[in-house]
Structure formats: structure tokens, C-alpha cells
Amino acid sequence: MADGKRRFQISSAFDIRTIIGALMGIYGVILTLLGIFNATDEELAKADGFNVNLVNGLILLGVSIAFILWAFLRPLVVEEVPPEAFDDHKAGPE
């Protein structure tokens, strides 16, 4: 990679941070709703009253927002290295 020909550009490629944020966000919404509307006494008794759906749902929403903010504030930058840089891999470094 030390070829000195680094170029930078904003990538249109997908960013794993938004994907993580999206999945955690969807899970957060589902769990929070379940925790609010679907927490029967029987279910709560399983965990001695700990409403785990609600708590984890809210945490996941927080995680989701953090990832999406991170991706938004520090957008993906791709280093483009010309394909020739890899042509020598068979010959080794000599």
C-alpha cells in the first residue's frame, strides 16, 4: 500500500455502520413495543420482574442512533489503489 498514489473520495459504496444501525434500530423498536404492550405478568415472572424486552429495546435504540450518527458525522472514505499495485503479489517483495 506504500505506493504513494493514494486518492481519496467519498464512496457511494455501502457502509456497514448504517447497516448495523438499521438492524439494531429495527430490533430496538420491536422489543420496546413488546416491552410496553406485551409484557404479561407471566412473562415478567420468568425473570423476577425484569422487563428485559423494554430495557434491551431502549438500549438497542440508543446503539442504533449512535451508529447512524457516527456514519453521518464521519462518512466513509475509500482509498483507491490502482490495480497494478497488486500485480507483484506472486513474485513476493524482492
Binding site: I30, L31, L34, G35, N38, K46, N53, N56
Partner: peptide, 11 residues
């Protein structure tokens, strides 16, 4: 099996 409610169980 013993602790998680539906939702968390799926997760």
C-alpha cells in the same frame, strides 16, 4: 428457555 420473554427469545 426459562428466562426470556418472546421477542428477546427470538433475538
Amino acid at each position: 428457555r426459562d428466562l426470556l420473554p418472546n421477542g428477546m427469545l427470538g433475538l
